[in-house]
Amino acid sequence: MRRAALLLCALAVAGCDLSGPAPVRPYDPARPPGVSGAMDPPDGAVAMEAAAPVNPYPANPYPADWDAAARGADLYRVFCAPCHGAAGHGDGPVRTILSVAPPSFHDPRLREAPDGHLLRVIEHGRGIMYGYGSRVTAPERADIVAFLRALQAKGDTSR
């Protein structure tokens, strides 16, 4: 009888213990001793990866027959068009809350600017524009510039 009761107790005491301590996963909030899932690296530390990763693009999501300008078009649409406009005139939907208008890429100043200038501005920003270096990698920045050149070549077809 005692053993039966003990067995019943054992069954009853089984709790569903799905969770327990877990490692710090990406974006987890801070916990002792001062670690979290998004910690700033120390100033001046240099990671080991090469400046350009060996394979800049996975086989997908870009089809093999897309060239740099085609990939750049897709990236431009996401990262640049909200401020700079779908056709690069500086008239994107975010323009209304900006204190300074984004320049048009068809402007002669930007037509003549070297690729390096465009790359630097994308990475580090300029004026009120924030840098996009952590959002688009170096090969992606090159693709965006390729698209901008294609855009400029097509010409200022509106206004």
Binding site: Y27, D28, P29, A30, S36, G37, A38, D40, P41, A47, E49, G133, S134, R135, T137
Partner: peptide
Amino acid sequence: AVPYVRQPEN
């Protein structure tokens, strides 16, 4: 989920 203030590059 608590993201970065400024995410490191790469």
